[in-house]
Design a protein around this nucleic acid. Structure first.
Lengths: 234, 234
DNA sequence: GAGCAACTGTGTCCAGTGGACACTATTTAT
DNA sequence: ATAAATAGTGTCCACTGGACACAGTTGCTC
């Protein structure tokens, strides 16, 4: 097993701290992660460097390595502290309502911390909080005739949808951000080459202002799941 | 408008080359992109650097900047040359078959070039080929009573699903790759904390070997879309 | 043809990155 | 009291993307 995964696992899953001799640590994992989150929130994940994080805490870059094995683990820690909690299960709600609330809450997390989209891409060690999100979806689908694989696949489906929407939202939000100009660049391109992208051109032209991207896909997914569930439990 | 988006647009959408005086360029965008793809295929997107790409071509790093404004544009070019072609439209097929073939073909692209998952994250200028993929989905859904926004949302939904599946596949493929050990690390963690993740633990335990992740979500999405379409066209 | 202008590829330089390592200062267990 | 373990610092390194000046090459224009 690689050292890296091991370090991440110990950091995310291991005991909070071991009291021992030596000077008392001035910093803490929580403060370091919070500093990283602050930078990422303000300037994006790309702006997070050991130096900047250390600088924000008035420490040397190398002192961070006393707490964190490396940058990858720092990012993992930032994810854990920022992804938040999934909505309460509430067995009084049906699986549809639970999944809907789950998707909306996750979207809120991605909106609050857009860099989470960059930090949760690619294979990585997930922390307990991130795994808890997954757990909730699978749990909500328990006992409706779906196999284990199917419940996992449904979770991936739902998470993928939320991700896609959040990414789209980030690229098209109408503020003056550097991402905002992408629409201003791509939309003319589509219309300029309307011969190659006729369907896109008309679809973009008939955009109503209402942002229902999340709900649209969500309801499609839920409808599709419901069809399967009724077929199975019948 | 930022210089960066402008450069990317000119590179991806502009005319192929302008003949002019001066020494004839020895390199070409195609060769540079191919070199980058070769490195990314072998060692991942993170291993792609100007030096390595230049070294593979037996050139200096700085000579690449005669062709490409910067690394971001190089990656965009790599995406354009690697993402491939969507399956032929074939109006003889219904929208369901078209979308299914589309998703399978895109999955194939992601499997062949796993780094595409990393390269197509976040806001960016899309090239004509990447936009063509989007066009095909929207086109397949034309004329079934869906609004422009809905067709776009459906495309995002489908693409998000394929992305999610491809990412999951990359993290769980059973070879000796560094990604493969993630399952070997995460699965025990879930079972070890089975009290916190009961649903996940049982779902993972009842995994049948068959990999139907792509099809499962796909059929759910298609079912959901079909329900909407029949409601609209009735 | 001569000369100029544009262009290509190279060499050098720089700030910034993640990280290794030796070192001093501090704390605690023996 | 002393020895061991720890915290934070300073220095160093390989590497990154990129700016810039330069020499060599080519073609357009007189």
């Amino acid at each position: 097993m690689s050292q890296e995964a091991n370090g991440a696992v110990r950091l995310l899953w291991g005991p909070p701290a071991k009291p021992s001799r030596g000077p008392k640590p001035t910093l803490s994992l929580a403060r370091i992660a919070a500093a990283g989150v602050e930078i990422a929130d303000a300037e994006g994940l790309g702006a997070v460097s050991m130096q900047k994080v250390a600088g924000l805490l008035d420490f040397t870059k190398m002192s961070l390595y006393r707490y964190v094995p490396g940058k990858a683990e720092l990012v993992a820690l930032m994810v854990e502290t920022s992804i938040g909690e999934p909505p309460p299960t509430g067995d009084e709600f049906g699986w549809r309502e639970q999944l809907r609330a789950w998707a909306e809450q996750l979207t809120r997390s991605f909106t609050e911390h857009p860099w989470l989209l960059d930090a949760t891409v690619g294979p990585r060690v997930m922390g307990p909080k991130e795994l808890d999100w997954l757990e909730r979806v699978v749990a909500a689908l328990d006992g409706h005739g779906l196999t284990g694989s199917e419940r996992m696949d449904a979770a991936v489906l739902l998470a993928g949808h939320v991700r896609g929407i959040a990414e789209q939202a980030r690229a098209t939000r109408p503020d003056g951000s550097p991402e905002a100009e992408l629409l201003a660049v791509l939309t003319p391109l589509v219309h300029q080459h309307a011969d190659r992208f006729p369907a896109l051109a008309t679809a973009l032209a008939s955009q109503d202002g209402r942002d229902q991207a999340l709900d649209f896909g969500l309801e499609r997914i839920l409808d599709g799941l419901e069809a399967l569930i009724t077929r199975r439990t019948r």
